[in-house]
Amino acid sequence: MLGLIATTGFAQLEEEPTKPEQTEFYEPVVPVVTPGKDGAPPSDAIVLFDGTNLDNWVSMADSTAAKWIVNNDGSMTVKNRTGDIQTKQNFGSIQLHIEWKSPAEIQGKGQSRANSGVFLSGLYEVQVLDNNNNDTYVNGQVGSIYKQHTPLAMASVPSGEWNTYDIIYHQPVFEKGQKVKSGTLTVIHNGVLIQDHVEIKGTTPYIGWPKNPVHGKGPLRLQDHGDNSRVSYRNIWVRELD
């Protein structure tokens, strides 16, 4: 049987291999990563918030010190109308772990109940919202890629308890001022797959169509929705994928 094997790591072969070692390779050597225990980040993670300070974050508006509230329980809470915060460091494609909770005391409804968001490259929003007994447009509900992709499931825990997002983000590719490859997002919410390698169509505006500004690496941004959302975050870390 004749043919070519084009799989990465294999040399091209004109004939079917007859020995097992002909289809085995030993490079590149796979790096060793030690998993975290009891919720701790893995050994190669970049910790962006460990509960002690906001040193890795700045105000999006003017790059001054972040003004959100650091709590005694190792979390931080949106300080109403102080604006979005973003990381000092820029990232490309990443694995992101982030935990968030809405307040147990219910206030507001629809998009005005515990509304925040996680923005990849500072541009593409994964929605944070308390949707427990609180309907809204489904492409803007919790776990949506805002105004683009409805989640496959609503997997929130009860209001006031901690949610987990594990996000795989591959940034778009641009050449000569044009997008040549769309970015993608995978989101696992409390262990449930809710976004399955979906295509990022562009930015995620409240009004208007997605846009595709040329960009490279960018910050991770957390939203102050400006309506007393009182959303809290903790245990934020990333692993760089590029």
Rank of each mutant, 00 (worst) to 15 (best):
N115E: 03
S121K: 04
K67G: 06
H97S: 05
K147I: 06
N132A: 03
L96W: 00
G140Q: 11
I5N: 04
V118H: 06
Q171Y: 05
L120T: 02
P205H: 07
G83R: 09
N71A: 12
E14N: 10
R230Y: 06
L185H: 14
A114V: 02
K179T: 13
P103A: 09
L13W: 00
H97G: 08
I98Q: 06
S156Y: 13
W237N: 00
L129V: 00
H197S: 14
V70K: 11
R113F: 04
E240H: 10
I145S: 12
K176G: 14
G216A: 05
D55I: 08
L48N: 11
P31Q: 08
N190K: 13
I145D: 08
G51R: 14
V126E: 01
D227Q: 09
V180E: 12
A11H: 04
A45W: 02
T204E: 08
L2Q: 01
A114G: 05
G143N: 07
E161F: 10
Q89A: 09
S144A: 15
V33D: 06
G83L: 10
I168E: 08
Q195D: 12
M1S: 06
W209V: 09
L4R: 07
Q223H: 07
I85A: 00
I94T: 06
Q195R: 14
G122C: 04
V198G: 10
H225G: 03
R234I: 05
D196S: 13
Y165K: 12
A61K: 13
V128Y: 00
N56V: 08
P213E: 03
R230P: 01
K211Y: 00
D62G: 12
N90H: 09
N131Q: 03
I188T: 15
G3V: 03
D166T: 13
Q107Y: 06
V138L: 07
E105Y: 01
P210F: 01
V180P: 15
Y233H: 11
K179N: 12
K201E: 09
N53Y: 11
D166Y: 07
H215P: 08
T87M: 05
P151L: 04
R234L: 07
A11F: 04
V33Y: 04
N134P: 14
E24M: 13
G74P: 15
M154S: 15
M76A: 10
D50T: 11
